[in-house]
Write a protein that binds this DNA or RNA. Structure first.
Lengths: 300, 300
DNA sequence: AAACATCGATCCATTATAGGTATCAGTTGA
DNA sequence: TCAACTGATACCTATAATGGATCGATGTTT
């Protein structure tokens, strides 16, 4: 196979059509340049130049090869430049995990922010529940996870990203949906309630269980589901009430009223970013800092 | 800049993740391979591999560079292969000249045939009158010309390609267009006639002049034009009769009848292919042989 | 736990390759 | 015909790449 030096020399001669000046441009003398071109021609088995008298002309083969040579040289230069940007994190691939519910709150801001401020970074998005994400973080399948707490401390680091309130989801015709009515947790006692699944949405399940326990309330669970939008569909169908994160407002479903509820104070729903402490993917560092920066400005 | 050898070595190590086996694949021993990779890393200013203990892993930068390296190597191999096909004429560029009137007869068959049987050959098509084509052939601007005879013999070779008849173009309502009427050259005597331009369509002008002179006929020239379809437009408008090559049938104009004419015998319109005798464009040879082959099967 | 095997890095002598100077041979233009 | 110019060649030198021997570190086995 030919060398890039030969290609560079060939392009120089092809552009000047003069060995002496081409050699000057390449910071060398003419004789070794002549030999380089000869070697390239022998290597290819093709004449690239017609040396007629003291004039040099490209052959048809040389003409055709010139384009390829330029392309190869350009690609090489480009590759050398872009690989240098990888360790700075400007270029690379980050596998980002997220929970279904975080897709409604922070995911779009994060994806958009990365796209805008780290355009060289490819994101690989993978939805899965927190527990699975933690496993994949440890195995290296994921670089960064958007998970629900807690994050067990074995080799993983984490940082809170976002907190949000829980709102009551009430079908439009329901008495609790009346404009002058302020719902209270106690109103849920004995009421039909669409609950999160303890398996696939354990975090929400446990948050709600602790809310109900603290208030001494016992709703009547009519279903256990994991996806917020499925829960809301059942609420709208009148099968029961539910508690959903505020981000559900963005879903904009008709026929449902979302209301803060007395006794469900503050922002009990937490989302944290987690990553492997010794992950050496440089793009991860850039992405992590950007995500934390976005969180500091209260993304939502 | 790095060398292609370095890229090849890098790809081998990246694919085997084992210096010893990579060196074997590259038909060399392990120590120089180690140094090659080190040199490549120093050249790029980037670590490509993590040597952890005795295991080798790609860094993020190495991962990114691997794709570029494969692309550059593939392109290089491709370029080496295709440049070898140029001297055989399978690949290349041929500048093909043609006269406006030949566009109606053989050009599409030629272009189509080249596209089908020499798919690697790019055609550059340039329309101009025969005289200009001959100049451009001599200067090397054209490789092959489709011209009207004669071809003066200074450095150009040529070959007849195609002959065709001249038909009378008669407006539909004209007495000569009657189905039972067989037009005769003498019918043109004193008649309004749309003539070719002696400047831009000299060949047709001279063919017609010699036809008229041989028959002792003197039509009344109402216009001198160069393009066949313009002439036919004037005929249809009733401004006069005309004589056009048979290929004009392909234009399919309504309101005009094309008829053979007694006294205009045979196929007086000739088209020849011409080329520079010492043109060293290999694709030209392939194209020339194809064109002549097509002509032998009476293209039209 | 200790001996062993494996693997990449390093050292050194050797070889191969590329570069430079001087010169040649062919062409061009005065 | 001669002088200038251009690419090719010959020859020497310097640089770089190669291969063998070996080192040091790391797992593995007994």
């Amino acid at each position: 196979m030919f060398t890039l030096n030969q290609l560079e020399s060939f392009v120089a001669v092809a552009e000047t059509l003069h060995y002496g000046r081409a050699a000057e441009r390449l910071s060398m003398t003419q004789p070794p340049l002549s030999r380089r071109i000869q070697l390239l021609e022998r290597e290819l088995g093709v004449e690239l130049f017609d040396r007629i008298g003291r004039s040099v002309r490209l052959t048809a083969a040389g003409q055709a090869f010139l384009g390829d040579a330029r392309r190869i040289l350009g690609l090489s230069e480009q590759a050398a430049l872009s690989v240098r940007r990888v360790p700075a994190g400007e270029i690379g691939t980050v596998a980002l995990g997220f929970t279904a519910s975080s897709a409604h709150s922070v995911l779009d801001a994060i994806v958009g922010g990365i796209h805008a401020r780290l355009p060289g970074v490819d994101l690989v998005l993978r939805e899965s529940v927190s527990g699975t994400q933690l496993e994949k973080l440890r195995s290296g399948e994921l670089d960064l996870g958007l998970v629900r707490p807690p994050v067990p401390g074995t080799g993983l680091e984490h940082r809170p990203l976002h907190r949000e309130a829980l709102l009551a989801a009430i079908p439009a015709g329901h008495p609790l949906a009346a404009p002058d009515r302020v719902p209270h947790v106690r109103d849920l006692d004995g009421e039909p309630f669409v609950m999160y699944s303890p398996a696939e949405a354990r975090y929400f399940y446990e948050v709600l269980v602790s809310v109900f326990r603290g208030a001494g309330v016992v709703p009547r669970y009519v279903h256990h589901l994991s996806q917020v939008h499925t829960i809301l569909a059942l609420v709208r169908a009148g099968l029961g009430l539910a508690l959903v994160p505020r981000a559900a407002e963005a879903l904009g479903l008709d026929g449902i009223v979302l209301r803060p509820m007395i006794g469900v104070e503050g922002e009990p729903v937490e989302l944290v970013a987690a990553w492997r402490a010794n992950d050496d993917n440089p793009a991860l560092h850039a992405v992590r800092h950007l995500v934390i920066d976005l969180a500091g400005r209260d993304i939502s």
